[in-house]
Amino acid sequence: MNHPVLSSLLPVVLLIAIGFIAGQRQWIRTSAVKDLSNLVFVVLAPALLFRTMSTVHVEQLDFKPVTAYFVAAGLIFFGTLVLRGFSRTAAVLALASTFSNTVMIGIPLIGFAYGDAGLVTLFTLISLHSLVMLTLATVVLELAVMRESAADGQRAQRHMAATVALAVRNAIFHPVPLPILAGLLFAQTGLVLPAAVDRPLQLLGTAFGPLALVLVGVTLAQTAVGTHVRGALALAAAKNLLHPLLVALLGWALGLGGLPFAVMIVAASLPIGANVFLFSQRYAVAEDLVTAGVAMSTVLALATVSLVMALAGRLG
């Protein structure tokens, strides 16, 4: 249990397992899952995101080590859209192939393996991770929703510029990007959250990770996972193996090395983050497949992250 990978991943697997048992025994019924998803997405996630970003000062961040990470994620994200076609399903699966569990798993894992120096690099990534990946996914999803609605005759076809403008507006005024932007703006003022505000936000944010993972387990219990094994394996392979491989290749091409490079490779190998499941719930698409993908990616990470860490140590 002292191994950093096992110490970080087993609690996540156990939380999903607890949710699975609760779902199987009907302690949490199907009718309640949507409400719990809204609680996590609309209340807990904004509290966590705002509080985390409220202490980030942009001028202190070193963006060089994370360049390879986001370039690799972008190649996979848009490559998925090209292969699967522009739709809500493709957008959610593209996010699943690129969005790492950097907080729940990444922080303890990197802390155990690389110490404070590694955490500095990881926190630089975390400060941008949700802002870049979730905002990108939201813009694409909002555009896809508009396109599908127009195709169904629910809306008149808009001029492309107007469509993009509305999608960006919907992406900003959204439970995920909005608290990130608000937290960043607050941090630049130099002010500190008063304890009476910070403490409730901390409590809400702390509840996010466990409840989100338990919710994955509940949905997993209500899902015929056997019918999604192949798709879940494909998502896990893209996230756990393809993403770190591309980061390693791009980092090598950019001349990166040392501890920051190793941390970015390992961060890219982290399993699919629970936020992807929440996006699939919110946009009502690929819920069963994403649920199976998150679970399989997390379980397989016990082996794949260990492999990537060993190889990253040599490259770094």
Rank of each mutant, 00 (worst) to 15 (best):
S54L: 06
S54K: 01
S54T: 00
S54H: 02
S54C: 07
T55D: 09
T55E: 06
T55A: 13
T55L: 06
V56S: 11
V56P: 07
V56I: 15
H57I: 11
H57C: 05
V58H: 02
V58L: 15
V58K: 00
V58I: 15
V58P: 06
E59L: 11
E59A: 15
Q60C: 00
Q60T: 03
Q60Y: 06
Q60R: 14
L61M: 15
L61P: 06
L61V: 08
D62R: 13
F63H: 11
F63V: 14
F63Y: 12
F63P: 09
F63R: 09
K64T: 12
K64E: 06
K64Q: 10
P65G: 01
P65T: 00
P65L: 05
P65N: 01
P65Y: 05
V66L: 13
V66S: 11
V66H: 01
V66A: 11
V66D: 01
T67Y: 01
T67M: 10
A68V: 14
Y69A: 04
Y69R: 00
Y69S: 02
Y69H: 14
Y69I: 04
F70V: 03
F70P: 07
F70W: 03
V71E: 07
V71K: 06
V71D: 01
V71A: 11
V71H: 09
V71M: 12
V71F: 10
V71Y: 07
V71R: 02
A72Q: 08
A72R: 09
A73H: 06
A73P: 12
A73R: 04
A73T: 06
G74D: 00
G74I: 08
G74Y: 05
L75E: 12
L75R: 03
L75Y: 08
L75G: 08
I76F: 02
I76P: 12
F77Y: 14
F77K: 01
F77M: 07
F78G: 05
F78K: 05
F78C: 04
F78Q: 10
G79R: 03
G79E: 13
G79L: 01
T80C: 11
T80R: 05
T80H: 01
T80P: 10
T80S: 09
L81M: 14
L81G: 13
L81D: 08
L81Q: 14
L81W: 11
V82S: 09
V82L: 14
L83Y: 10
L83S: 11
L83N: 09
L83F: 10
R84E: 11
R84Y: 12
F86T: 00
F86A: 00
F86M: 08
F86V: 03
F86R: 12
F86W: 10
S87G: 04
S87A: 03
S87D: 02
R88C: 00
R88V: 04
R88E: 09
R88D: 00
T89H: 11
T89I: 02
T89C: 08
A90S: 15
A90L: 03
A90E: 02
A90R: 00
A91P: 05
A91I: 06
A91L: 02
A91M: 07
V92Y: 04
V92P: 01
V92K: 03
V92N: 02
V92I: 15
L93I: 12
L93K: 11
L93M: 09
A94G: 00
A94V: 13
A94D: 09
L95N: 07
L95R: 01
A96S: 14
A96Y: 00
A96T: 13
A96I: 12
A96Q: 10
A96C: 12
S97F: 01
S97A: 14
